[in-house]
């Protein structure tokens, strides 16, 4: 589903964000991407979203070679990838419902169908009662869950999360991870960038570790794997 082959990314200022990164994430897998800040986690996610283009190497998402993707096809790539952002990226000038509905509105879905899907997604994250509120009235954890609902509402085959538990307490973090696990259980390919190693270990999944732009560790879950990645 996600295939990186010898990917290099050098920014215009000369910063080498990724160096020779290769990995394959099969469809339906769930993996964690860790590493200290600045190690290249965000760059890696941006490459998948085609917010950035690899300097060298190839990124293939769902069979599509991203370097050959024409700009007007990028939106359709992004519809296949639900993304949960650390800063939520919610729009405060509209309700929770409208925020979650956005991907479906963009796809041009029938309003009744949108209503059903949005409520199902909100119900899934436990926010059905707050659909009419503005996101600004919600707590951080609730906002994050709105973001998750929006990421999954159009049933994308891939779900990416960038520090989804960044500002949350352990209890909320665990709940949100539980949600990701549930999505993965129904076949969504999930990739979560986080530096919360404790959480990673508890989840017992494949872990990839980036350091200074290089993939220094990539292994299926082993108890010592996550701790080894620190530093």
């Amino acid at each position: 589903m996600i295939q990186f082959s010898n990917v290099f990314k050098r920014y215009e200022n000369g910063h080498e964000a990724l160096q020779n990164v290769s990995f394959h994430l099969p469809s339906g897998d769930m993996t964690f991407l860790t590493g200290h800040s600045g190690a290249g986690k965000s760059t890696l996610l941006k490459l998948m979203m085609r917010m950035e283009v690899a300097t060298r190497g190839s990124v293939v998402i769902d069979g599509q070679q991203l370097s050959r993707l024409k700009p007007h096809h990028v939106p359709f790539l992004r519809r296949k990838i639900g993304v949960v952002f650390q800063d939520h990226q919610l729009l405060f000038d509209r309700t929770v419902f409208d925020n979650v509905a956005l991907p479906l509105v963009i796809e041009g879905m029938d309003p009744r169908e949108i209503g059903r899907r949005v409520r199902a997604a909100l119900d899934k994250v436990g926010l059905l009662s707050k659909e009419k509120l503005s996101p600004i009235m919600l707590s951080g954890g609730e906002q994050q869950r709105v973001g998750i609902a929006r990421a999954v509402v159009n049933k994308p085959p891939i779900l990416l999360a960038d520090e989804p538990t960044g500002n949350l307490d352990p209890q909320l973090s665990a709940e949100i991870m539980q949600l990701f696990r549930q999505f993965n259980a129904v076949g969504v390919t999930v990739m979560i960038a986080t530096h919360d190693l404790e959480l990673v270990q508890r989840m017992a999944r494949r872990v990839m570790v980036l350091k200074d732009g290089a993939m220094i560790h990539d292994a299926p879950f082993k108890p010592q794997a996550a701790t080894g990645g620190e530093g």
């Binding site: 339906g28 069979g63 199902a120 549930q182 129904v186």
Partner: peptide, 21 residues
């Protein structure tokens, strides 16, 4: 739990590799 979730979301395990279109 997984079954009910899967049922509600109607998603199938996407097992087959999708050909690039």
């Amino acid at each position: 739990g997984g079954a009910s979730y899967s049922e509600r979301w109607g998603r199938q395990q996407p097992t087959k590799k999708r050909a690039p279109v």
